[in-house]
């Protein structure tokens, strides 16, 4: 295990899952990568990764009905751990078990990417940010998205999680993104990893049930995501230390 990242944004619709899978595929060229749909309340990743029909998901693992291995799928050069969409399963899933699941997965991989909930309003939504070493903040150049991104950073650093960088997504030509990114960086502990242009390609990839980097590898947003991945200075924390940290993380076992 090298490092665990939470991919987070305070607001929905910023393209977090697209970003998680894109960064995962790009990092997988160099590392062994596992991506986890840690947004247990709103499963999304299975639709992006062609896993809509699978039987066993993270929900089953969190409900203690399945082993972690049964919910992992090798796809697109990565290990993918999707969440299910059944509300019943969600009710049965114990979010605090995520810590143990993450520890198990961490022992088997180099980089763990946790696709996090688009909210900070519950323990299960914040948990991936608490468990990660660093957070990658996905945002759009709008006032609500920026103020939510600031909140994500302050929550993360309050819980001992650093900021790896900012990913401006769905950027339009006339967003004056260079000025906005430069001003934004003053308030964040991490650099801008990339500004990713708005593109139909991301939507088409989602419809096709394939990650953007598999569906449209030479599209402008795919190129930007690959650039973002090269700018993440992955830190080797030593596998045992990381796994131990997850096992003894700050979350108590029972709610």
């Amino acid at each position: 295990m090298v490092e665990a990242f939470a991919v987070a944004s305070g607001k929905g619709g910023t393209g977090k899952t697209t970003s998680t899978l894109a960064l995962g595929m790009a990092l997988a060229e160099e590392y062994d990568v596992t991506v986890v749909d840690a947004d247990t309340g709103m499963a999304n990743m299975l639709f992006h990764a062609g896993l809509a029909d699978v039987e066993t998901t993270l929900h089953d693992v969190l409900a203690a009905d399945a082993s972690v291995e049964a919910a992992t799928y090798e796809r697109f050069g990565m290990t993918v751990v999707p969440c299910g969409t059944s509300l019943d399963d969600f009710r049965d899933a114990d979010p605090t078990r995520l810590r143990a699941v993450v520890a198990d997965l961490a022992a088997e991989t180099d980089i763990l990417l946790l696709d996090s909930a688009a909210a900070l309003d519950s323990r299960s939504a914040v948990l991936p940010i608490v468990l990660a070493d660093r957070v990658i903040v996905v945002l759009q150049p709008t006032i609500p998205a920026l103020s939510d991104a600031l909140k994500v950073q302050e929550y993360a650093t309050s819980y001992g999680t650093d900021v790896a960088g900012l990913l401006f997504n769905k950027v339009h030509d006339d967003d004056a993104i260079d000025e906005i990114a430069a001003k934004t960086e003053q308030y964040f502990d991490g650099p801008t990893l990339a500004t990713v242009p708005a593109s139909e390609a991301a939507r088409e990839a989602r419809r096709a049930g394939r990650p953007l980097l598999a569906h449209a590898p030479s599209s402008p947003p795919a190129t930007s995501f690959r650039r973002a991945a090269t700018r993440i200075d992955v830190r080797d924390r030593g596998s045992e230390a990381v796994a131990d940290r997850f096992r003894s993380a700050v979350i108590p076992d029972s709610p």
């Binding site: 619709g13 150049p141 709008t142 339009h172 967003d175």
Partner: peptide
């Protein structure tokens, strides 16, 4: 996907 295109000034 996005905000009104005239937003850049307000964001700055």
């Amino acid at each position: 996907d996005g905000p009104d295109r005239s937003d850049a000034g307000a964001v700055e």
